[in-house]
Simulated assay, not measured.
Amino acid sequence: MTAETAPRIPPLEAPYPEGIAELLTRMTPPQAPEVLGLFRVMAVNPRLAERTLELGRHFLGRKASISLRERELVILRVCARCGAEYEWGVHWSGFADAAGLGEAERRATAARDADLGALQPRDALLLRMVDQLHDTGDIDDALWRALGEHWSHAQLLELMMLAGWYHAVSYVCNAARVPLERWGARW
């Protein structure tokens, strides 16, 4: 491991300080093979980790008003645009199959210059939304109208917040240099 790839905030290691083991258990999805490195980094600040838990559960759980496929396409594209291979790989390995994503979506979410024409039209709209938000912090009128043909205002708010949330997650993954998971996909 080089200085450029060494974690800047090392993930906590067991045995964990009092209360941290329970927090990490609540943060870790049941299907995860182990406690994720990102969660062990976040647990360095337990109060912040606790506060982010509910928002993360909303975006990934049954409370969301958008489908798993839609959520994962947004998450994957945001992470790729931010260069967050850690989070992109965790989501690809953990959710792509369940979301019905295949090789065309993998290529489209991972490459900035991917041909979105190979995607379903709704999927391409989501990736275009992420790209515009990432590049400009806004959505132009034409894309907004196109998005509005498929998603309600409440869903559009959720999609924009989801993109922003995973932008923040990507910042943490990249700047803290969270070590890649052994089982996570790579670009």
Rank of each mutant, 00 (worst) to 15 (best):
R128N: 05
A3G: 08
A21K: 10
R106W: 13
L116S: 04
L101S: 07
A99I: 01
E105M: 05
E34K: 08
A176E: 00
T136R: 15
P7T: 07
E87R: 05
R112M: 05
A110C: 04
D141A: 15
L147H: 11
W183V: 02
P17A: 05
E87C: 12
R8I: 12
D115K: 02
M1R: 11
R26V: 06
R107Q: 14
A154T: 15
A6W: 08
G137A: 12
V169P: 02
L156C: 07
R77W: 12
R107T: 14
A3S: 11
R112F: 10
L143K: 09
V169I: 13
A80N: 12
L53Q: 03
R8Q: 10
R47V: 10
M129N: 03
L147M: 15
M42F: 05
A118G: 15
R81M: 14
D97S: 12
P15G: 09
P10S: 14
V172T: 14
H58W: 07
G164V: 09
L157Y: 14
E13L: 09
L125P: 02
L60N: 09
A114Y: 05
N174A: 03
A6S: 11
F39Q: 02
R47S: 10
R69D: 03
A14K: 08
G100R: 14
A124Q: 09
L116G: 05
R145E: 12
W187Q: 13
A146D: 15
E18F: 02
A168R: 08
G94T: 07
A99G: 06
P46L: 01
L60G: 11
A168S: 13
V78T: 15
L73R: 04
A43T: 00
E158N: 10
V44E: 04
R47F: 00
G100A: 12
G37A: 00
G102V: 07
L147Y: 14
L76W: 10
P179W: 00
G117K: 06
D140R: 11
P17H: 02
A104H: 15
G117Q: 05
G137E: 12
E54N: 04
L133Q: 04
R128T: 13
W187I: 10
E4C: 07
L101M: 03
D138P: 02
G100S: 07
A104I: 14
M42C: 00
R40P: 00
V44Q: 15
L133E: 02
L116Q: 03
L180S: 03
M1C: 08
G56S: 08
A64E: 03
V41H: 00
R112H: 13
R40Q: 06
W92L: 08
H153F: 12
P121G: 06
T2Q: 11
L76C: 12
L23E: 09
